[in-house]
Amino acid sequence: MHRRGVGAGAIAKKKLAETKYKERGNVLAEDQIAQMSKQLETFKTHLEEFASKHKQEIRKSAQFRVQFQDMCATIGVDPLASGKGFWSEMLGVGDFYYELGVQIIEVCLALKHRNGGLITLEELHQRVLKGRGKFAQDVSQDDLTRAIKKLKSLGNGFSMIPVGGTYLVQSVPAELNMDHTVVLQLAEKKGFVTVSEIRSSLTWETERAKHVLEHLLKEGLAWLDTQAAGEPQYWLPALFSELYSRDVSPEEASQLMP
């Protein structure tokens, strides 16, 4: 009988073939990687070229900046990831967002005693623009959102709460859960909210509504008005529209110092 390929020789041969395959495979893979990195390199060079060529536009135009950010996001590049990387050195975008972050913190701190650390994105936007002066580069709400996201990495101090079509920016680490957020959303239109409004809009029990409102009072985010017709109203200074355009008075500013 002749059986092929079962002897010791055959095993050795098979092993040899396997290693050969493996080696070949490795070579192929290396080739592929080399090619890929070459492609990526080319792409990066182009993106860099593009970036340096349009540096001015990226820095100046808010709209252009959004598009550039989107472009970077699709290929997994975060130009803000580090202050030292190529992107920030090249474009100064890192500095731009850091600067913006500082300005956001300044505005939030200055108004904290009024609104308890809650502010609409629009108001924040207006005040940051005002603070930057006429000749600084334009800043969009998208830029603010990005800068705030960067601030989050400093701790849980900053967060954004979606209300209606916009956002509330929270600059104090108050514990807000879904219930609180929903109530804030309800208060967005009029600047205040009542127990029965919550009951009818959200079909909650009175207790649950009261509990949330008490919490907002406790955190200094809401003010109580007992003189309203019918039932008490809970007002959110952050959503009080007349406050919107008011400057910080000198008296208020002097209270900022702890």
Partner: peptide, 25 residues
């Protein structure tokens, strides 16, 4: 008038101590 003058809860003594302090000032 300061902004608070048109803010209805300004005319209710606030239950929260911190808020009340701001209100009194």
């Amino acid at each position: 008038w300061p902004w608070q003058y048109n803010f209805p809860p300004f005319f209710t003594l606030q239950p929260n101590a911190d808020t009340r302090q701001k209100q009194l000032v």
